[in-house]
């Protein structure tokens, strides 16, 4: 085969790094995964969205060769998870929902231990550990035990631990659950850097904004089955609109407010119980429209909130029900 691109390079560039084809997994009578198919190409982030119990972690377990599928086929980094689990494990990193580090070893010793288990000699193991400590800003904590770390630091050590072996594919199972906003942002930036460097990431999350920010494509799981997949924009288009909720002051009240907003061409939905009015808008910039309408009618508001479509909205919408969660 002759051409500008060598066959090897072409194969590498287009590599499907994560692939599941009709993967099912049952625990007794419980069908934890129901014929799940998905794929991710090298250097992309696949977001796996779903509530607790949707099957996200089970799928991660299957893809990391920790749990054999009951049926179907899965391959990671080009190796079948059932037939070549050891080859898969050489090429993956896993950060679970809970930090998986030895609490009795220092941060550095944890990383050295993993490098040694992966086959590094003593010296390269130490070099690798120090690299990762530096990359994750953990040098100051290197000789301390993870028990003394904050939640954010521990998660960073855990992520560092999953990168020890230069993995091609990283699995992040709800990596930001329980993290404060700044640690969350910090972790997002680390993931973005990794992906820019060609690592493939599978990220499970309950948060749409996280998937939105990081994922190139999103697969939504519900009760073990894929109920939607596509880019963040495609999913949001299926869900529809954002919601502005107005709490008018007592002088105006919901009824008057509704009338004013209707006059401005909006479609308000009153919530009499809470004394609020919900308005569906296309995007965040449309808040101005609502404010202008209120201003023109001389209505004062004690509170105004804006909400993007949530995972709940996605679920409701995909389940074929009305997405009017605001009312």
């Amino acid at each position: 085969m002759s051409g500008p691109t060598s066959p090897t390079a072409a194969r590498t560039a287009g590599d499907i790094m994560i692939e599941a084809d009709g993967v099912s997994r049952a625990f007794g009578s419980l069908r934890a995964l129901d014929s799940v198919s998905l794929s991710a190409r090298r250097g992309t982030v696949l977001g796996l969205l779903g509530h607790n119990g949707a099957g996200k972690t089970t799928l991660v377990n299957v893809l990391t060769a920790a749990l054999p599928p009951s049926s179907g086929r899965a391959a990671v980094a080009g190796f079948d998870v059932t037939r070549a689990p050891r080859e898969v494990r050489k090429r993956i990193g896993l950060t679970g929902q809970f930090a998986s580090v030895d609490p009795q070893l220092s941060g550095r010793d944890n990383l050295v231990l993993l490098a040694r288990l992966l086959g590094a000699d003593r010296r390269s193991a130490r070099v690798r550990a120090d690299e990762l400590l530096e990359l994750f800003g953990l040098q100051g904590f290197a000789s301390r035990r993870p028990g003394t770390y904050s939640g954010g630091l521990r998660r960073r050590l855990d992520l560092a631990a999953s990168l020890v072996g230069h993995p091609d594919v990283i699995f992040l199972d709800e990596p930001t659950t329980g993290l404060d906003p700044s640690s969350r942002l910090n972790l997002w930036e680390i993931v973005e850097d990794l992906v820019a460097g060609g690592t493939t990431v599978l990220l499970t999350t309950q948060y749409l904004d996280e998937a939105d920010r990081l994922a190139d494509s999103i697969t939504v799981l519900s009760a073990g089955a894929v109920i939607a997949s596509g880019t963040a924009a495609e999913l949001k288009a299926q869900v529809g609109t954002c919601t502005v909720t107005v709490t008018p002051d007592s002088a105006a009240g919901p009824a008057v407010t509704c009338a004013a907003l209707r006059q401005a061409g909006l479609e308000p939905v009153p919530d009499r119980e809470n004394g609020t009015v919900a308005v569906a808008v296309e995007a965040s910039k449309d808040i101005a429209q609502v404010i202008r309408a209120l201003d023109r009618a001389g209505i004062g508001a004690t509170a105004l909130s804006f909400r993007e479509p949530s995972l709940d909205d996605v679920y409701l919408a995909l389940a074929g029900r009305s997405a009017g969660a605001a009312s």
Binding site: E134, L135, H166, D168, L194, G198
Partner: peptide, 8 residues
């Protein structure tokens, strides 16, 4: 085949 990661 292995794009240089930000990791040194």
């Amino acid at each position: 085949p292995n794009p240089a990661p930000p990791v040194p």
